[in-house]
Structure formats: C-alpha cells, structure tokens
C-alpha cells in the first residue's frame, strides 16, 4: 500500500523544526511501523537525504525505547501496543499519517522524533529503588508476599518507562509513570523501609523536572502500552499524604533537572 506521511523534522535540539511530507510506497501490511520507517529511510539515503531519526531498540515491545505520536495518539491507534509492535495492517492504502515526537518541556527534542527522557531516569534515581544487602541470595521464600499484592506490584512493574503517559496527558504530567514505580515497590515488603522517603523524593523530583500536574483525564491509562492503571495514581497520593502525616521521610534530589 501507499501512505502519505507527515513527519516532524528537526536537525538538532536548538534548531527550528517543521512538519514535512513524505510518500511511503510499497508498504506491506505485515511490516511493523518501525520497519515502514526503515524503508522510508533507505529510500531517503539512496537519494542522499538525511534519514529520519527515531528511537528504537528491542522491537519486541519490552524495552520502552520506541515512542512516536501517531495520528495524535502515543504508539498509534492500537491499545496496549508499542510502536514497534504496531503493524501496518492497522492502516489502509492512501492513509495520511502524522508522526510527531513526544511533546513536553521535560522531554526536549534531540533530533527529529527522538526526545530526551532522562527526567524519568532522575525520578527513578531519586527514590525508585530498594536498599538491599548484596552477597549470596537468600531463599526465595524467606520474605512472604501475599498473592494479591504481588499481582498488583507486577502490574505496576510492567511499566517500561516509554513516556507515552506524558505524551498523552493534556497537562504533560508524569504521574502515571511515577505512580507505577511508587506503587510497584510500595506494595511489596522489600519496599517498606524507604516507602515514605521514596514517595516524597520521587514526587519532588517529578515536579522539579517541570512536568504538569495530574487532573485525571485518564488519557495516560488509555495510551499506556502496558496498561498501567490510574489506580496507581491513587496509591501514590495515599502514600504522599501518609508520608506527610508521619513526617519521617527525607527528600533526596537528583541534580540535572530542568
């Protein structure tokens, strides 16, 4: 099939960008969205033009590297699917497809469709971890975890940190990401010692990175390729209120924000 593409091109972080039109010929419905872009890039390179820069890595839907706002929806029209797992059979011959980078002040464009998502790394570094002794591993059943808790923790841990939640949010809020990380550890016994400090630090860091606030549009939940629930946002809020009341957590800040 033949597709008309409108793609954001921007040579560098400080350069001005603009939408440009391209035509993708001979697209097979079995191609993934990224393979379709690979074909377009091959053609551009043959003509001596600069290929379109986009993020990708595992192409298996598990690494969180691919992004792309496709026709106004992060990762395109299919639910619970990353861009790399989106196939061209989701489109029809003659379609016009708009492809843009994630848009948020916290995620500046580095080039074309690639944005800098290091604010997420700093949010994790500020508190999204547990302190555990290293050395020989203890028995797997030494710490018991109730099955419902482990299920909910695993659901939250499915977050791959792609940033689709921020991209989809009309406020550019990072609450779904941050809450998934807070809930994932907060639901498990191993996460308890640092629970207050974790939520205080991660929310503080999230705000420092200049993401917007959450107003519960729930667009993030719909856009999330891993179907992270907004229930996690309520868990984060509960933890933050609890930590404020208990007043035992120390805020840890990562440098480099903003």
């Amino acid at each position: 099939m033949k597709l008309n593409l409108k793609i954001w091109r921007q040579p560098g972080p400080a350069a001005a960008g603009a939408m440009q039109s391209y035509v993708a010929n001979d697209v097979s419905e079995h191609m993934s969205f990224l393979e379709m872009l690979d074909v377009v890039n091959e053609e551009l390179q043959t003509k001596g033009e600069e290929p379109i820069a986009f993020d990708h890595d595992c192409r298996e839907g598990i690494c969180g590297t691919c992004s792309l706002m496709i026709n106004g929806t992060p990762h395109g029209p299919k639910r619970a699917t990353t861009t790399c797992q989106l196939h061209m059979r989701s489109f029809s011959d003659g379609d016009t497809i708009t492809i843009e980078p994630w848009r948020a002040k916290a995620f500046p464009v580095l080039r074309d469709l690639i944005v800098d998502r290091s604010p997420f790394d700093r949010i994790i570094a500020s508190g999204g971890f547990i302190s555990a002794p290293t050395g020989s591993a203890q028995d797997a059943n030494a710490i018991l975890v109730p099955k419902p808790d482990s299920d909910l923790a695993m659901d939250a841990a499915a977050c791959i940190g792609c940033g689709a939640c921020v991209a989809a949010c009309p406020n550019s809020s990072a609450m779904l990401f941050t809450s998934a990380k807070v809930a994932h550890l907060g639901l498990l016994p191993q996460g308890q010692p640092e629970r207050d400090q974790r939520v205080l630090s991660m929310v503080h860091q999230m705000d420092l990175e200049e993401f917007g606030g959450c107003t519960l549009f729930a667009e993030c939940e719909d856009a999330c390729p891993k179907e992270i629930s907004v229930e996690n946002i309520a868990r984060l809020n509960r933890d933050l209120i609890r930590a404020t009341v208990r007043d035992r957590g120390q805020v840890h800040v990562e440098s480099g924000a903003g």
């Binding site: 409108k6 954001w8 939408m19 706002m69 026709n71 106004g72 929806t73 708009t98 843009e100 848009r103 948020a104 002040k105 916290a106 989809a168 009309p170 406020n171 550019s172 809020s173 200049e210 993401f211 917007g212 606030g213 107003t215 549009f217 729930a218 667009e219 939940e221 719909d222 856009a223």
Partner: peptide, 19 residues
Amino acid sequence: MLARRARPITYAHHEYRVA
C-alpha cells in the same frame, strides 16, 4: 499555568481518546 508551561510546543494532530 504549570500545565501550560509543561508543553510549550503543541501537537499538530492530537486526539482525546477517553477524557
């Protein structure tokens, strides 16, 4: 105001899906 500042460049094409 925070939300406005958080997205200086808006999307050329944006769709609400569930809001």
